[in-house]
């Protein structure tokens, strides 16, 4: 079934089977592999994208339900290939990245958080990250990166 979708500011026209997840369309049909599948059931947050600016798990979002939405993926976070966002820089600097598979999902949620709350507390960051699992880092350096990002904005 036809689907037109706005992804990263581009209008895409696709033929997509009904019931297909947004994640599948992004990765397999649009080649946007930065968004990862970790569990396919909305538990790990690796597949987080922004739908009209709000974080959602694209693995459990029907692609056709996004017909009128603006989808933003990890590929357009940051200003250019040479200039990651401040948050991305802080994640690299703080050591908040290990295997990196969960990282795009964390970047998406934290980008959304910093948009609505420029200086989140430790508790607010942890609350926002409830739906994102990182198996490597134990989270501390990720949280530190968010606090460092907020400081650069002050």
């Amino acid at each position: 079934m036809k689907l037109s979708l706005t992804v990263n500011g581009r209008q895409e026209s696709l033929d997509v089977e009904v019931g297909t997840s947004l994640l599948h369309v992004l990765r397999e049909q649009l080649g946007l592999t930065g968004t990862k599948e970790g569990c396919a059931e909305g538990e790990c947050g690796a597949c987080t994208v922004l739908r009209d600016g709000k974080p959602i798990d694209s693995c459990i979002m029907a692609a056709h339900a996004c017909e009128q939405s603006e989808i933003t993926t990890i590929e357009v976070i940051g200003d250019s290939p040479d200039h990651p966002s401040e948050l991305q820089n802080c994640l690299v600097e703080s050591g908040g990245i290990q295997c990196g598979f969960c990282t795009p999902g964390f970047v998406m949620v934290l980008t959304a958080l910093l948009k609505v709350n420029a200086a989140p507390t430790d508790a607010e960051i942890k609350h926002a990250l409830a739906g994102n699992i990182c198996r490597c880092t134990g989270y501390a350096q990720i949280i530190e990166a968010v606090i460092a990002t907020a400081k650069t904005h002050q």
Binding site: G42, G45, T48, D57, V109, A112, G131
Partner: peptide
């Protein structure tokens, strides 16, 4: 209910 992502959707 779930995490932020689930609460949005």
């Amino acid at each position: 209910v779930g995490g932020w992502q689930t609460q949005e959707a």
